[in-house]
Design a protein around this nucleic acid. Structure first.
Length: 199
DNA sequence: TACTAGATTATCT
DNA sequence: GATAATCTAGTAT
């Protein structure tokens, strides 16, 4: 399906391995429709992959539980969790139902609806609006209620256009985890100040 | 500019 | 009862 931001990614895309999806998502646009011709949108500039096997930091590592159930849903599902009691983070679930892999969306470059994002973020300065997984959730007003949303059939979706960022993607260790911390599963656009981690 | 502590709660052991 | 894929404000340098 086409939108003003590009083509909505379909379930075929999300059924790929999380490392692939994480890399491919860089440069894509995360869009939330909030009304007739009203959108929040931002370019994805930072992601992390969480694997179903050999990744002790993945929420799916201990097996399926109530908390991580969405992570075991079919690729294309949204997995939202609350961390440190106060922050929300969003993932795009990857691969088939029952697998337990996902891609954490960590940072966006705001494109549209910036006024609304600033309201949601309590008038935070532009440079940190969608910097960090909890911040972008706040800016997009995503909460536990959005858990299990279908990214291919709801008001929240990701689009692709013809732009290609493959040459500008950097890989590094993931941020903020203690287990399996050496895996190189974080992908981000270089030459932008909006990625999280440092300043 | 750099580091540290505090917020705050569902979930699992 | 401890932990967690974080952020912010505050104090110190």
């Amino acid at each position: 399906m086409d939108t003003k931001f590009g083509k909505i990614l379909d379930s075929q895309f999300y059924l790929q391995a999380p490392e692939i999806v994480a890399r491919e998502l860089i440069g894509k646009i995360l869009v939330k429709k909030i009304g007739e011709d009203k959108y929040l949108a931002g370019r994805i500039i930072e992601t992390e992959a969480y694997l179903s096997e050999g990744d002790m930091s993945s929420h799916s590592a201990p097996g399926k539980t109530k908390r991580n159930a969405a992570m075991f849903a079919r690729g294309g599902t949204l997995y939202v969790y609350k961390i440190y009691g106060i922050h929300h983070c969003i993932n795009a679930v990857t691969e088939n139902e029952g697998t337990g892999s996902a891609v954490l969306i960590r940072a966006l470059q705001p494109l549209e609806g910036i006024e609304i994002m600033r309201e949601n973020r309590n008038n935070a300065p532009f440079g940190v609006l969608c910097k960090g997984p909890a911040n972008l959730c706040k800016a997009f007003n995503l909460t536990a209620e959005d858990n299990f949303l279908d990214l291919t059939k709801s008001n929240l979706f990701i689009t692709a256009n013809d732009e290609n960022y493959a040459e500008e993607i950097e890989v590094s260790k993931r941020i903020g985890i203690t287990k399996s911390a050496d895996l190189l599963l974080r992908y981000y656009l270089k030459n932008t100040k909006l990625v999280s981690g440092k300043k």
